[in-house]
Nucleic acid binder design. Structure first.
Lengths: 155, 155
DNA sequence: AGATCATATTTGTATGTGCAAGCAAAAATT
DNA sequence: AATTTTTGCTTGCACATACAAATATGATCT
């Protein structure tokens, strides 16, 4: 796929097709690659990266609600429910109903993981930097973040 | 998540953590957003974007093998199998065994979709451009593509 | 030629995710 | 105060994808 190198501003021409396809697949490939690194590092802690990140949010804001987590993690509420369920099974987190809301709190076992999780995040960061360069990580993150925001109309 | 704005080169400090997390989630969010647009446009053709792209590859290279498709689409062979299965169900594609290889060929019904698929790709491209600007699409694609390549060690 | 190794594909199983529908609590309207 | 609407969360179902194991064909090396 060297379609990318032929990028010209006018998107009307025939290559626009392949080009959009490329963005679509690249974006997914990037997400998978990045996720793979995340899961690899968090594997040692016995979590996936989403679970890990959710857990650290819960630790830093005990009593946080699923909807708040949904906003922070850019995941739908239903997904949050699944993640919390699994963390609950592992006894790293517990739920408390308060009216319509649900509060999510870390258990001692969950809190005990915080240091490991931070280490894992650091290793993840280092691996990104090693693979694509620190400056690029930064640029990439900004651009990806911006684009994601614009595309979801969530500005 | 305004973590992004605080990006500094040194990834050692405490914010590196949040920052990597941000890239991870942004990348996934971007992929989902981009995919959503793709699926929306391809929905009219009755396909998902991966099926559509696979089909157009098969049309332009009749007899292409799953492994070749795997390389082009950046998907694992097993995923290709599933995709082809579904397209076969819909009678848009057929398989032909040739020794160890499997050749994938479009059916007439499949070929008939080509124009619609191209239109859909164009609309997808236009929507990307509308959302994040043509210049940005271009830059983004390049960057994402490059990063994905570096991260998978597939250079 | 027979045995081992390599390659190409498929299947079983699992995961993360979302959508749409359901339910439960709260808020608003009458 | 009773009904409707909104909000927050959860469940059922579906999908795209991957990994690991299974299978089948081909290639290589005695």
């Amino acid at each position: 796929m060297d379609v990318v190198s032929e990028c010209k501003a006018g998107s009307g021409e025939k290559n626009g097709t392949r080009f959009s396809a490329c963005l679509l697949f690249s974006a997914n490939a990037l997400a998978r690659a990045i996720t793979a690194i995340g899961d690899e590092e968090f594997g040692r802690v016995g979590l996936s990266y989403s679970h890990a990140y959710l857990l650290s949010e819960v630790i830093s804001q005990p009593g946080i609600t699923p909807s708040a987590l949904s906003d922070t993690l850019y995941l739908t509420p239903s997904t949050i429910t699944r993640l919390v369920e699994k963390l609950e099974q592992k006894q790293l987190v517990r739920r408390e109903s308060e009216g319509k809301k649900t509060l999510i709190l870390p258990t001692p076992a969950g809190e005990a993981l915080q240091a490991d999780i931070n280490d894992a995040w650091n290793r993840v960061g280092q691996r990104y930097a090693a693979a694509i360069g620190e400056t690029n990580v930064c640029q990439l993150t900004k651009q990806v973040f911006q684009a994601a925001k614009s595309l979801t109309g969530d500005e």
